[in-house]
Simulated scan of single mutants.
Amino acid sequence: MFPCMKRVLAAAALSLALIAVPGAALAADASYRTLSAANDPDWMRSVPDGASLAALSVPGTHGTMSIHGGSLTQTQEDFGNSGGTLARQLTAGIRMIDIRARVNDGNTFTIHHGAVYQNANFTDVVRVLTDFLAAHPAETVIMRLKQECTGELGSCTDVPGQKSFPDIFDSYRTPVFWQPSVTRSAAAATPTLGEVRGKVVLAVLHGAHGSPIEHYGLAQFATWTDGSSTYIQDNYTVPNVGAIATKRDQVRRFLDATNAGDPTKIYVNFGSGSSLFAQPQQVAGGAFGVQGVDPFLLTYLNEGHGLTRTGVLMLDFPGSGLLQKIISYN
């Protein structure tokens, strides 16, 4: 083989390696992996009662309780099992959460991300939310609840012989939930903040393959299926590190669409994404010199770009500065 051909093949192999081999994400900073430095448990207190939830700029987390399973599964900093991680996020200012549940023995929900049990149960979720909102009654928390198990490779399998997912959910409907959002027969209109202070608002109840279950949640999310839809950007497949740039652009475009969109609707913009060759931490924090979504977002929001609201930003491994910047738009 000619020497020049060897160099070409070696260069090609190196390029493929950079795409395919996981690498360390960027170091923690104001945008990434510094949620412990954030402390904003009462930020909604200064927002007028008459403000629609749609008018708010809300930091959220994707895979809110996913702290176990390794780099391909973990999406959040670990602040403890049994709801400890959720409690720390709420104190930091997170106000939309993404909860993934498996049907388990005794008609109960356990918290999963894919096949991995996250050492927490739905009773922990309800307990933490109830305690937090009792201590901070001016706040509200928006929840997306998803039946996580599909029974397919890489997923979990629900325990057979149990009640249906919505029937089990109904057994958890304590007074902490805003009741119009947890009534299966009639979806709720988007409320004002004053209507839901001290309550959990269910945005949508998703089945195992992403379709909404009956009429739970808010009416505007009736078409929220797996991936992106009218008011949702959730292009969650990022095939390799190089494709993080595409994900950044999708987040940016949806931010601009949110700002120009229907002011009566909540827009939910997922900054998360992953694949075998682009781990959640890499998409969030960056890798191999490619800027991650979190530092990009902090820079973009700091620059302004005429934005007056961000909508809901669902993040992996958010940093304290990014949370503070999103909240500042209120």
Rank of each mutant, 00 (worst) to 15 (best):
F177S: 04
R45Q: 11
L315E: 11
S274H: 07
G289L: 08
L315M: 13
K325P: 04
P318E: 02
A208F: 05
Y32G: 06
V125N: 09
A245K: 07
L18P: 09
E139A: 05
A27P: 04
I111T: 06
A28T: 12
S71D: 12
H305V: 07
F221S: 02
A243T: 08
A135S: 07
A203G: 01
R253S: 10
N81A: 14
R173G: 00
A208H: 09
V290R: 00
T310M: 04
N121W: 05
D49G: 02
E214P: 00
R102V: 01
A188V: 13
S52E: 01
Y32W: 05
V241G: 09
V47E: 13
E195T: 10
A101S: 12
Q281V: 12
W178Q: 07
S82A: 13
V204D: 05
Y329S: 05
L86W: 03
G194Q: 00
P48T: 11
D256V: 06
G23C: 09
A101M: 11
Q281T: 10
S211F: 01
N119Q: 05
Q76K: 03
L313N: 14
M96E: 14
Q279Y: 14
W43C: 10
V283M: 05
P318H: 07
L14C: 14
T110Y: 11
L133Y: 03
F270E: 08
N119A: 10
S164W: 08
A186G: 04
V128E: 12
G154Q: 04
Y216L: 04
F169N: 11
L153Y: 15
I232T: 02
E148M: 11
G50C: 10
L218S: 12
G304M: 13
F288M: 09
A12C: 14
R184T: 05
G304P: 14
A101C: 15
V128A: 05
M96D: 12
L297Q: 05
C156R: 02
F254I: 07
L297Y: 12
D42K: 15
A37R: 11
A188R: 01
P160Q: 08
P160R: 04
G292F: 06
K6P: 01
Y216E: 07
V125F: 09
L14I: 15
T140D: 01
T264A: 14
T223K: 11
H215R: 14
M96K: 11
Q250W: 12
G304A: 10
G154S: 01
L53I: 05
N302K: 15
V204A: 07
V58E: 06
T237A: 07
G70R: 14
P295T: 06
T91E: 15
S185D: 03
T299R: 10
A101Y: 00
S52Y: 04
R173P: 03
G304W: 13
T310G: 00
S82M: 10
F132Q: 02
F2G: 08
H113D: 09
S320W: 01
R127N: 15
T73V: 15
A38T: 01
Y117K: 11
A135Y: 03
T183G: 09
D124S: 12
T258A: 13
T75L: 01
V201F: 03
D226H: 09
P180D: 02
Q233M: 15
T150I: 14
T91W: 06
A51C: 07
A186E: 10
I168T: 03
F79L: 06
R197N: 04
